[in-house]
């Protein structure tokens, strides 16, 4: 009997289950840029089904951006992100990453935050202190909020490479978070994993946390392009597809969603590019951002994820703002603060 598991990726299902339907191609940013089947989940699965090993398909394995767009559309519910990570584990690991993690482990332990909610903003947002301060102020309206001392950026990179994270390093990262009831995470891949590490906490993406606030929702308009961070969205697709459909109905804004309601990533850097081993130009040539904008009549681009700003700035002259910056819109802030609660 066919199961009705709603496209929830099943880790026990691997390349052997791939039927070759090709639905993953339709959403894969690597395929959009290259139109090379070998660089897609289908290509990897078929190669493995016919006797190839990880080394034979290394370029393909490293080209994946882990955006996870392919997972919700795979009718066989294959855990495609895990499949890629498993293959990465079998390849030579990028140099320098272990040292980076050791360096972080050696830092003195972070103090336990006094607040029950913690924000892990990620490197890109930290580099924009004004926007970060706005995000903090907004999120603090629903309760006391602490800023995490440790972004776990090295852990996120290691996860991306399929590298084991040393126990001590993980503990250094998780220890200050253990008492938090709610953790808001900007990095989608970190969020996906943190759900397993901290099963008792409520883990939400920064995008959902901010867009759930009335202040932010009210500032969104019909001529906005709202750019969803794909990794967090696809990791919790069944729930979030409804959430964002509600946001669309309420605000009228356009999303970076395709007809299957899959989030189109704004950039598609490969693993070597993320590790600085290859120039970024080949990976982020604006193809994705241009495709998101094509034929869409919008006047402003609103981002959940600060990393996406560069891609849009390189292909359009439209104002690009972070969700947190919307709080400055209009003078409703004081009135709205009374109403702010998470959707």
């Amino acid at each position: 009997m066919l199961s009705l598991a709603k496209n929830a990726p099943q880790p026990d299902k691997d390349f052997a289950s791939c039927s070759g339907c090709g639905l993953c191609l339709l959403v894969c940013p690597v395929w959009r840029r290259t139109h090379d089947l070998a660089l897609t989940p289908l290509g990897r699965a078929k190669a493995l089904q016919h006797g190839a090993n990880a080394a034979d398909i290394a370029v393909s394995v490293q080209s994946c951006t882990l955006c996870a767009a392919c997972e919700p559309v795979c009718p066989e519910d294959i855990g495609l992100v895990e499949m890629t990570l498993d293959l990465r584990r079998r390849l030579p690991q990028p140099e320098g990453e272990q040292a980076r993690m050791q360096e972080q482990t050696a830092r003195p332990p972070a103090p336990q935050p006094a607040a029950t909610a913690v924000l892990i903003p990620g490197t890109a947002l930290r580099e924009r202190p004004v926007t970060l301060a706005r995000a903090q102020a907004l999120l603090a309206r629903t309760g006391k909020l602490a800023l995490a001392d440790d972004d776990g950026a090295d852990i996120a990179l290691a996860l991306e490479a399929g590298m084991p994270v040393p126990k001590q390093r993980l503990e250094r990262f998780l220890q200050p978070l253990r008492r938090a009831r709610k953790i808001i995470v900007a990095d989608g891949l970190l969020l996906r994993n943190a759900r397993q590490w901290l099963p008792r906490a409520e883990l939400v993406s920064l995008g959902v946390a901010l867009s759930g606030l009335t202040t932010v929702r009210r500032a969104l308009g019909a001529s906005d392009l709202y750019v969803i961070e794909p990794r967090a969205y696809h990791a919790d697709y069944q729930r979030l597809v409804k959430y964002y459909d509600g946001l669309r109905a309420a605000s009228g804004c356009t999303f970076n969603l395709d007809l299957q309601r899959i989030a189109i990533p704004a950039a598609a850097p490969t693993l070597p590019q993320k590790f600085g081993l290859e120039a970024a130009a080949g990976g982020d040539d604006g193809v994705q951002a241009r495709w998101i904008l094509q034929g869409r009549n919008v006047t402003r681009i609103v981002l959940e994820c600060m990393e996406d700003a560069a891609a849009f700035n390189s292909v359009s002259g439209l104002p690009v703002v972070h969700l947190a910056d919307l709080a400055d819109d209009g003078n409703r802030r004081n009135n709205d603060s009374r109403n702010d609660n998470q959707a």
């Binding site: 089947l37 070998a38 289908l42 290509g43 078929k46 190669a47 089904q49 016919h50 006797g51 190839a52 034979d56 398909i57 393909s60």
Partner: peptide
């Protein structure tokens, strides 16, 4: 390569 050909097996 096998990887290229297998996708169309």
């Amino acid at each position: 390569t096998i990887a290229a050909r297998a996708a169309f097996a």
